[in-house]
Design a protein around this nucleic acid. Structure first.
Length: 232
DNA sequence: AGCACA
């Protein structure tokens, strides 16, 4: 119902994207945002009149796509909530991996018949494969966890304190998550202490918005971000 | 709203 009656697909179809974002930046940001769910084979975005504001993200596993559809539904991305469904057809990059790719001109009727069958099979496989995937994200906006320690919470202020980041996290990755919220200023990683960061906003209202939206966000399945106000 | 593969 949420995603219509489209059967599961390795590729997700995203609409309601901010059309002002340039194509290459959009593709890169989508790649970063969705790689938490699994290996991405391709990201397709076109700016033609008919296709702007939409994109396709192709995963190597159907289960990754399923998690992405559920957990990133309505995620505020460049100020607009993403609307995510399964793609209606198989992506070329997937067909190429399976060796079933037929160049555009030829594939018409003959392919479409076979494709229905294939998709039905995939739906079964994904059902069978369910149960492998681990922790489910409470949803990007669903989480309001405060500091897990018995610490006194700091009063709201313009600086966010981020904990539980994977050690491989880069400043650019965090920027891409936080810069979509108004008032963003900068990210500061602490080299001496991997796994934590500070994010500066113009004021405490704007920092609160970002905290509410991103608290608990999983950069990897093992790393839900823990966001609190920094102690001053 | 809009389902492609530059």
């Amino acid at each position: 119902m949420l995603s219509g009656d489209i059967p599961p697909n390795q590729t997700i179809y995203i609409k309601n994207l901010n059309e002002k974002v340039k194509k290459d930046e959009l593709k890169r940001s989508l790649y970063c945002l969705f790689s938490q769910y699994g290996r991405i084979l391709d990201v397709v975005a076109l700016k033609t009149p008919r296709l702007r504001g939409q994109a396709w993200v192709c995963f190597s596993e159907v289960t990754a796509a399923s998690n992405a559809v559920r957990q990133m539904q309505n995620f505020p991305f460049y100020e607009k909530p993403m609307r995510i469904q399964y793609a209606k057809t198989k992506s070329d990059c997937i067909a190429k991996e399976e060796g079933s790719y037929v160049p555009r001109e030829k594939k018409k009727k003959q392919e479409e018949k076979a494709e229905r069958k294939r998709r039905a099979e995939e739906a079964q496989q994904s059902a069978a494969a369910n149960g492998i995937h681990g922790a489910s994200n409470g949803g990007p906006t669903a989480s309001f966890r405060q500091g897990s320690s018995a610490q006194e919470a700091a009063a709201p202020n313009n600086i966010l304190f981020i904990e539980n980041l994977p050690h491989e996290t880069t400043g650019r990755m965090l920027e891409m998550l936080f810069e979509q919220y108004p008032g963003f200023k900068e990210v500061r990683l602490i080299e001496a202490k991997p796994g934590i960061a500070f994010v500066d906003f113009e004021d405490e209202v704007q920092s609160s918005m970002a905290m509410q939206a991103l608290n608990g966000f999983k950069i990897t399945p093992m790393n839900p971000m823990n966001i609190t106000f920094a102690k001053k």
